[in-house]
Design a protein around this nucleic acid. Structure first.
Lengths: 199, 199
DNA sequence: ACAGTCATGTAACACGTTACATGATTTG
DNA sequence: CAAATCATGTAACGTGTTACATGACTGT
C-alpha cells in the first residue's frame, strides 16, 4: 500500500526542502538550472506535487511577502516529512533498485549525507557495492548465454548497459575511498559545508 | 504534435515485431525474461499499447489458433509501422536525448542494425560520440563551478553521473571498433543472422 | 481434481506533459 | 510602455501501475 510522496519528484522535493524552506518557484528553478534537471521543472508537475505533500502533512506552507511585496508560499518539512525522508534515504539497497539504472538510489545518496551524516554514506556505499557485484554477475551470465542470438547492435547495447553498471561499481570504490581519506569533516548536522575551496 | 507510438514501450513493440510477428503474450514474455525487462511486462501496459498501435494502423492483428486450439492474436507491422520504426531509429542524436540517461538512444541502437544495417550503425555511433563529448564537457564545467557548494555525497552523486557518460563515450569507441574490425557480415536485410556461433 | 501456464483483457488510480491562464513587479 | 521575470495555478491528455477477472488447455 504505497502512499505518497512516492514519486521521485516528491522525494526530490522533500530532500531539497531539508534544511532550508523554499517556494514552489525556487524549487522549479533548482530543477531547471542545476544537475537535478532530470526532474520536472514544469508548474504542472511541481505545484500538484506540493499540494499532495501538503495534503499528506509532509510539508507545510505559509504565505509570505517578498521585498517587492509579491505573495509567495514557502514550504518547510514537517516532522512527518522529515522522518519520511530519513526512512527513504536509509532503505536497504536491493537488486530491484538497480533494474532501471539506479536513479532513485543516486537521488537517495545525494541527500544522504545531509540527512544522516557520513557514517551512513559509507554503509550505503558498501551495500551498493555488493548489490552491484551480484547484479553484474547476473548480467554477464545472461549476456554469455544470449549474445549469439542477438543482432550485433543489440549485443553492443547490452554491453553498454553492463559497462554502465561496472562504472557504478568502480565509482562505489572511489567514493568509499573519499570517505576514508577525508575523515569525518563536513559534519552534516543540517547546514552547508564550510564553503572551502576545492583541492 | 506528437502522435503515438510515442512511448518507449510502443517503439519497443514495433522493434520486436520487426521481422517476426508476435502475440501480446509473447511480447510480455520477452519483456519479462530478457534484457528488455526495463519495459513493462504487465498486461495493463502492453495490451492497451497494442490497441493504440493498431488504432493508428502501425500494427495489424489477426486471430490464430495454437496447436492446442487456443485463440491468440498475432500482430505484424504494417507498412506505416515499418516506416515509423525506420524514421525513429535514424533520428539524429541530440543533446536532449542524453538528458535522462540515454535509454531511448540505446533502444534505437539495439534495433538499428536489423532495421537499417551496419552502415547506419557506425553513423549513429559517430553522432553519439560527438554529442557525448559536448555533453560531458558541459557537465564537467558545471561540476567545477558548483562542486564546492554541494554536500559531499551530492558531489559524489554528480561525479557518478559524469562517469556514466564517460563510460558511454568509451563504449562508442569500442563499438565503432567492432564495426571496423568485423567488416560488414550480418547483412541485416530483414531477417535473422545466419545463426552462426560467435567469436 | 487441482495447479500451473497460456492468453487476453478491464478498472481505478497516480503521475507527468503540454498548453493555457492570470496578474504583479521589475527592468530597459 | 513594453518586455522580461516573479509567482502560482488549472485542464486535457496519455500512459504506466496494481489489482482483478475470465477462461481454456496441460501436466500430475
Amino acid at each position: 500500500m504505497k502512499r505518497p510522496a512516492d514519486s521521485l519528484l516528491g522525494y526530490a522535493i522533500l530532500g531539497l526542502l531539508h534544511g532550508k524552506p523554499k517556494s514552489g518557484y525556487e524549487l522549479r528553478k533548482i530543477f531547471s538550472e542545476t544537475a537535478m534537471g532530470n526532474y520536472s521543472d514544469s508548474p504542472g508537475a511541481i505545484y500538484p506535487a506540493l499540494r499532495r505533500l501538503e495534503r499528506d502533512r509532509q510539508i507545510a506552507g505559509r504565505n509570505e511577502k517578498t521585498a517587492g511585496g509579491r505573495e509567495r508560499r514557502i514550504f518547510r518539512l514537517t516532522n512527518a516529512g522529515t522522518s519520511k525522508l530519513k526512512q527513504w534515504t536509509i532503505l536497504p539497497v536491493t537488486a530491484d533498485d538497480l533494474d532501471n539504472g539506479a536513479a532513485e538510489l543516486m537521488l537517495r545518496f545525494a541527500f544522504l549525507e545531509q540527512v544522516h551524516g557520513p557514517r551512513l554514506c559509507t554503509r550505503f556505499l558498501s551495500m551498493f557495492h555488493d548489490a552491484l557485484e551480484d547484479y553484474i554477475d547476473k548480467l554477464e551470465k545472461y549476456a554469455a548465454v544470449n549474445r549469439s542470438k542477438m543482432p550485433r547492435s543489440a549485443q553492443l547495447a547490452l554491453e553498454q548497459g553492463i559497462r554502465g553498471y561496472r562504472s557504478m561499481y568502480d565509482w562505489t570504490e572511489y567514493a568509499e575511498q573519499q570517505y576514508r581519506t577525508s575523515g569525518k569533516r563536513t559534519s552534516a548536522k543540517g547546514s552547508q559545508p564550510s564553503k572551502g575551496g576545492r583541492r
